[in-house]
Every structure is written in structure tokens, then in C-alpha cells.
Nucleic acid binder design. Structure first.
Lengths: 341, 341
DNA sequence: GCTTAGCACTCATTAAAGAGGAGTGCTAAC
DNA sequence: GTTAGCACTCCTCTTTAATGAGTGCTAAGC
């Protein structure tokens, strides 16, 4: 619905604005060379683009800046994915070459490296715990009524939580039950635990099933309490370097949002497979109405495991970030696979 | 060395400045009533106080603000500890009434509540792991060469780390050794592990001591990797609400510092017993030259366990914060004791 | 001798006014 | 359809002046 020339002009304006953070005037577009028309012609097109909702004008005598709709069009039709610069590639290589022997470390490190490379804020969602399987379950009594429950997954991930013990179970009974659970349920994917419980354990000791269920409840409880720990944040203070956030009050609402792990979790875990860009209000959070979130999911054996996200101002370097996320998410699998197999 | 009147004036100036964040003039001191002298007299004293280094003047025609030395004198001789307001007491009570069944949660929650009550940033150092004792040690093989090591302390704290296994140990040997270690070393304070190893285990299997040592090394390794997790931060963004930090660049260096857990750890773990106030440059960190850190240590059974700290601008409410920290640190023991015994 | 009223002086802050300039929209010519 | 020309808008920056809070000093008062 846009003419080729309009697309070129829109593209030039967005590019320019991303670079400079200043409203873009017709003359500076004309001088760039890509669009070889006079400023007057470009002005006419800009006027049309504004009428169509792709551009905005801060005030009459200023240049144009992209509207949300403009960014959307840019992202959907115009942006070209960046390829990694030699230095970036170098950093990536050294990241993948590193000997990190825990999934968390890989994720955490990925977050850090992304934040450093982009100068934006990175939000990374670690592997979905429920897609892994039970490696070991243990219950260590602390007092008469409490114990620390420990769940180890096949990925080497350890979760623990101090729990209140089910009433009316003797410690020897408890031990026996834990042993049986381990014997029968090790290797079972976590999300299947409950159903497996009935087919495996239920047969043998049907009269105690309710107590077993309580134990499985503990396991699930331990894992659920972990959800928030899946979120890794890095470079939050990079927000402070963006000219649009030089006002302390604005940036505070953003940083406060970044402090709320549950909100972050909801935000990033709602990402679709592949690369997704959510611009401004599409994020549905007042505080980041002037931010864009670019997410990429990473997989293992074809299954979605987690999400990598970059949060920056709407005026962010979409091409570069998408390129980086694409590269990282695709190669992430390799690293994780190495340690989880 | 200061006259009574000078002390009163200094006190009034610091109080006023803490409240208003504006240079304090002689007239406003005179009007407060505490010092019933004319502005001219007060001006003379202020001039003397400046000469003595307790006050500073931003420019000729401005009021005075306290210098670091002025704050130091205020903290050492003038400030009166705040008593908790009814609302504050209420918050404290509900905090202590809460059923938190893990030390980490207590600490984390203490940090949050402090940040909220003071509107400053709280840095809390959790219990020293090495002062607790071994509850359980476990090694779960993941691959041929790696395993996840799990250490549980008597406080219900669980640490884990994926480790590379010592070369040349069969899995059954390993199991046997872990069992023996558990048998002999459970209940031993963590800092005594190594020495105890020799007296307990060394006798029985002297030829394998080096391998045992390697296992203990793993235990210590697991615990060391935890040091950073002892630090809990809350209310970092509160810094943004302080008028002295309305400049984004200044506040960025502070927030960046707060992101460096190891630095925080060093900073807060160097606190002396009891309540300590470090003003401005006394913190030895460029980034927080305009901040003060007030710390209080909390104990259990007379032994130092950890530290609670509040970081704010040098112009912070010393009296109130010291009152809060005093109250909290003294009552903290009670909560922790409840769950660790 | 300590205290204080009086006054000149300093200097940050604020408001107003003007100059400059970037950029637009429109019109008319190419 | 394209573009040069031009009047117009409005932000930004600078200058200037006014305001006022606060000081330091001197001399008078108690």
C-alpha cells in the first residue's frame, strides 16, 4: 500500500532517527543519497506518510519521527537483519568456547554478553523446568515438622525448598516412600510426574496414594517456586544511557518494572516462537510504552526451551538486535546440548 | 572542642539540610527556636564552623551545608537515635510474625522491608555459611566426568554446583567415599571440615586421603561459589528519588556499582560489629563518594552472622535509619533462631 | 565583651526579550 | 511529476535585567 519511494523514505527516516534520536528533516534525507529527490519532493511524501500514520511531528517546525505504526512497518517490511561485526563474532565465539558447566551459567552469561553488545537491557528466560525429567528427589528432615526438599533434574539443575511435612507420617515411612518414588519416577519428565505416579506407584501401594500425592505435590511445589529464578536480567542500567530516558522519573518507572521478576516472567514467557518484536504499547505495560522488546526463542531437540529478550527504547537498532538474537538463539542449542546430554 | 552553642547550631543545620536538601541560612536556623540567637550571631558561629571544617558553602551567597567532617561529628556526638513510629513498628511486627521457613526468605524480606521503610537502598548480607555445620553431602553423577554436588547445612540451606569429577575414581568408590564422609562429618562446622577430615577419616583410610581431600575440596568449592549469593539488595531504584541524584549520569555510576555483587560483598562484609556509619569517601568507592552506608551486624548465640546495611545520600536520615537498624538487627536473631534450631 | 541591627555586596535563579536557525507548507515555475 | 523559492512557525540559545536569599563587616547596644 506504500509506494516504493515512500518505503525508501520511511526506511531512511527510521534509520536516521535510530542513529541520531533527533527528528529527521527532509533535507537530511535528501542529502543521504539513497533517495535522490529534492527536499521538497520528500517533504510532500513525508506529509503523506504522516497522514497515513507512519510518521509524527513533535511540532510544526521540526522534522518527523516514526510513529509506532511506522516502526511496525519498518520492522515488518523494511529492516534488514544485521550481520555480526567481526568484533561481535569474536565475542560470540569466545562465549561459546567458554567452559561453563551449568545451564544457569550459560544463560546468565548469555544475558550479560547481550547487554554488553547492544547497550540495551537483556532479559533471558532459562530452560523450562517442566520439560526436563526427574534425576533425583530427596527429603532431609530439619525439625519434627519441616524438611528441606531437593529436586535434581537431568540437566543438573538443583532446586530446593524448606517445606512443612505432611502430618502423620513417620520418618521411616517417609524415607521408604521417597526411596520408592526415586526408584519409580527417576527419568520421568516432570510434567508427567503426577500421571506417572498413579500408573507406577499407585498399583503397589494404593492405600497410601494420597500420601504419595502429597509428596509429588512437594516436588511440584519446589519446582514452581523456581519459576522466578528462570529470569535473568542484565544491563538494566543501560536504560540510563538512552537520551530519551535522561529524565530520572521516566527511567525509574522502567527500572522499577525490571525489578518485578514476576512481571518480567509474564512478559517474556508470552513470547511466540521464533523472533518477535513488540513495539511500545504492544507490550501492554504503561512503564515501557516507549520501549520495544525483541524476543527470540531457543530450542533443544526441536522443543522450545526458553526465550532471549532485548529491551530498549522504541528507537532501537532493530536490525542489529534481531541479527544478534537470531545468531545467539540458533547457536544456544549447541552449547546447552553439550552439557545436558 | 566545640562550644555548646556551636554544637546546637551544627545540629540544627544538619537536621535542616537532611530535611530540605537545600543550603541552610542563618535566618532559618534562628527562626527554628532551638537556638535563640539572632541571625547575625549564628552567622558568626557558622563562619567559625566553616573555618573548622564542619560546614561548607556552595557559593558566597548561599547558606551552609555540612561537610563530611560535619556529618561525622553529627553522627558521633549529636544525632539522637530515632524510635520507631507506630506505623513502622506495625510493619516490623508483621514482618516478624510472618511464617518464613527459610533463612534466605527472612533475609530477603528484611532487605525489602528496610528499603521500603527508609526509601533508601538496603544491602543485606546473609548468614556466614562457614559458621554453620554440615547436614548432608551428596554427589549425583550426570555424565562420565561431571556430577552435581549438593551440600546441605544444618540451617536448611542448600548449595549446589556442577563439578568435574576427580580423575581415576570409580563410581562405586565415589559412592562409598561420599557415604563415609557423610557418616563421619555430618554435624561438623564447615570451617572445621578439613581438619576434621584428617582426624576422623584419615585414620581409617589413610591411603585414600588425597582423594578425600579432593572431595572436601568440592564441598568447599560449592560453598565458596555461594559467597555472592549471601548478598541481598533491595530498593536500588530509590536512589533515583533523591534530589542529589537527579542527574542520570551520577546515578548510573551508583547503580552500576550496586550491580557488582562482589564489590557489594566486600563493602558490606568489612563492617564492624554493632552499628557503623561510613560517610562519603570513608566508603572508599568513587561512585558513592556522596553516599553514606550505615551497617548493623546481627548475631546468633553471640556469634556474628551477617550484616544489614542501608545506603543513601550523605544527607540521609541518620537518626531514623540507625534506630531502625538497631531494632531490626537485635530482633533478627529471634526470627532466625526460631527456624534454625 | 558578647550580641545584634544595619547595610553593602555577591551570586544563583528566574523571567523576558531577541537573534538564529532548522524545518515545514504552499505556490508557481520547470 | 518535480523542484525552487519563500513566508511562516517554533524551538533553542544567548543576553539582559530583576529578584532575592544569604553573607560579611561595622558599629551601636546591653
Amino acid at each position: 500500500m506504500l509506494t516504493e519511494r515512500q518505503r525508501m523514505i520511511l526506511n531512511a527516516i527510521v534509520d536516521d532517527y535510530i542513529r541520531s534520536a533527533e527528528p529527521v528533516g527532509s533535507r537530511s534525507i535528501s542529502k543521504r543519497g539513497e533517495v535522490s529527490y529534492s527536499p521538497a519532493t520528500i517533504r510532500n511524501e513525508m506529509s503523506d506518510l504522516e497522514e497515513l500514520g507512519f510518521l509524527e511531528q513533535p511540532h510544526t517546525s521540526a522534522g518527523r519521527i516514526p510513529s509506532h505504526k511506522g516502526y511496525r512497518y519498518y520492522v515488518d517490511h523494511l529492516v534488514q537483519f544485521g550481520t555480526l561485526l567481526p568484533t561481535e563474532l569474536e565475542m560470540m565465539k569466545s562465549f561459546f568456547a567458554e567452559k561453563l558447566n551449568a545451564t544457569e551459567q550459560v544463560i546468565q552469561h548469555a544475558a550479560t554478553i547481550l547487554a554488553n553488545m547492544t547497550n540495551y537491557t537483556s532479559i533471558v528466560l532459562g530452560p523450562e523446568m517442566f520439560s526436563t525429567s526427574l534425576r533425583h528427589f530427596q527429603l532431609l528432615p530439619l525439625t519434627d515438622t519441616t524438611a528441606v526438599a531437593i529436586v535434581v533434574t537431568n540437566t543438573g539443575h538443583v532446586e530446593n525448598k524448606t517445606v512443612t511435612l505432611p502430618a502423620g507420617i513417620s520418618s521411616s515411612d517417609l524415607e521408604q516412600m521417597v526411596n520408592l518414588l526415586n526408584h519409580k519416577l527417576v527419568g520421568v519428565p516432570l510434567y508427567k510426574l503426577k500421571s506417572q505416579l498413579f500408573s507406577e506407584v499407585g498399583d503397589e501401594m494404593s492405600r497410601h496414594v494420597s500420601q504419595y500425592e502429597e509428596l509429588i505435590g512437594i516436588v511440584e511445589n519446589v519446582l514452581k517456586s523456581d519459576e522466578e529464578n528462570r529470569v535473568f536480567l542484565s544491563g538494566a542500567t543501560n536504560m540510563l544511557t538512552q537520551p530519551e530516558f535522561k529524565d530520572v522519573d521516566k527511567v525509574k518507572t522502567i527500572l522499577d518494572l525490571l525489578d518485578e521478576t514476576p512481571t518480567l516472567l509474564k512478559m517474556i514467557s508470552s513470547a511466540q516462537n521464533g523472533i518477535q518484536v513488540r513495539i511500545g504499547t504492544e507490550n501492554n505495560h504503561q512503564a515501557i510504552n516507549n520501549c520495544s522488546l525483541i524476543t527470540a526463542t531457543y530450542t533443544m531437540d526441536g522443543e522450545a526451551m526458553g526465550t532471549i529478550g532485548i529491551l530498549g527504547p522504541t528507537r532501537m537498532e532493530y536490525g542489529k538486535v534481531i541479527g544478534l538474537l537470531d545468531f545467539l538463539s540458533k547457536n544456544m542449542t549447541a552449547v546447552l546440548q553439550h552439557w545436558n546430554k
